[in-house]
Design a binder for these strands. Structure first.
Lengths: 234, 234
DNA sequence: CCAAAAGTGTTCCGTCTACACCCATGA
DNA sequence: TCATGGGTGTAGACGGAACACTTTTGG
């Protein structure tokens, strides 16, 4: 282990890693990159990078997000997930990583990022399975990200982060169904989200679908917590 | 800012800081130390210290906990809270800190720790108020710790971490009342905690109080999540 | 008219709240 | 016996699940 010291204090490198989720093709997908260098050259990993001098952790996460997805962090939900610092998690030496969770609507192809690294969307079911190896401890980070995202849909309004505004109640329900991998009763779901104060703001507009009655369009409301919560049953 | 580099990568120091709560004298208290050196010499701060070589973050937190409270981390609830890394949060240079939340029963006087630093229990109301300055960004960390602890009583069984086994339902209720700063209906609370499967294990013993009917004694059950949750009302 | 999706009404049922009430002990 | 806290019973309010039903569009 190569570890320098400042005084009697060991020094370590700090990275941020991003668990970026979107709902695409009826499934929850995560953005993974193919590593272009050692260690773990060629294997899949979460996007991320070193925290720079004078940069706060949230800033570093937002910068990496912009570099990887070409989307301004303003338009996404971004929150700190957890910090991982097992001594041997990176063979290059002591590196601890602050993991972030990002949720966004179906984004433009991420390959347009400034990094030349190949980035692509991978269904979470695939990424999480034992058949898909991920670099470092990224599998564990991803699993925790999924759990956090699923839990947060229950008692917060973050699900709207997956929707492009304006959106319909059915689109929002689709987000819940995909993230939770369940079916929800459309009528009861409609009542819950429209009655939760501050969750949805009606635009007064409607969208005519290919089939069926036009649906009212909404934007995100001011509320961040969802009362009453929308609980997963079973 | 004194920051060394390894290759092109900036190196930082990493600390763990502990938000240690207990219920003492009918109020929620936090363990604070009086700093014995610069910066912030003499002011109150959360206990903590540098992460050592080859030490995982959880290990470092458990070690600091043992040093500060002289209590084995096995007997306490210990979980990662959040990581703080604002560039100027420590005047000595770039130091990021991984904050941990620890919950335990009314502990022996913490001054017996191996560190010579003066440690003492401070009511959270006092510590959190604007009249009590805390070192670094510790006020923010403390506030987030309080919020986390309060929220976790709702949907997990961590409240039992505040109780010495065996304990009565009234003692557990007292924990909820103190942490939430509310009064709870004793009869309804009793039903909720005894019906939640895996929360409490009856010992078959009773404790005869100074006054009133003897109360059944319980130990912690296997459950970590609380279903149904015990919600704060209002 | 039919199919399909949006949205509303209604019934049933379980949980929470409030509070009356009984139980077990020491004084 | 009384006072006190432990614990149970119960009626009403509230919210969720299930599902029948109405609305609004395109074909």
């Amino acid at each position: 282990m190569i570890t320098k010291r400042r005084g009697d204090v060991s020094l370590v490198s700090v990275t941020v890693d991003l668990v970026i989720f979107t709902v695409r093709s009826d499934c929850l997908q995560v953005l993974l990159i193919e590593r272009g260098k050692e260690p773990h050259l060629g294997s899949l990993a979460l996007p991320g990078g070193y925290v720079r001098d004078g940069e706060d952790l949230d800033e570093a996460a937002a910068r990496e997000l912009l570099e990887e997805t070409n989307v301004d962090a303003e338009r996404l939900h971004l929150e700190q997930l957890r910090t991982y610092g097992a001594p041997a998690r990176d063979p290059r030496g002591r590196v601890i990583t602050v993991a972030y969770l990002a949720l966004g609507p179906d984004l433009p192809t991420p390959t347009a990022g400034t990094d030349a690294r190949a980035a692509r969307w991978v269904p979470v079911k695939t990424a999480i399975s034992d058949e898909t190896p991920l670099a470092f401890d990224h599998k564990e980070i991803l699993r925790e990200g999924v759990e956090r995202a699923r839990a947060k849909l229950e008692y917060t309004t973050v699900a709207t982060a997956f929707c492009l505004e304006p959106f319909t109640v059915a689109e929002l329900r689709h987000v819940y169904e995909v993230v939770w991998d369940t079916k929800l009763d459309p009528s009861n779901f409609h009542r819950k989200v429209t009655r939760a104060i501050g969750f949805l703001v009606p635009t007064g507009q409607r969208r005519v679908p290919q089939l069926g009655r036009p649906a009212a369009l909404y934007r995100r409301g001011y509320a961040t917590t969802l009362v009453p919560a929308i609980l997963r049953t079973g």
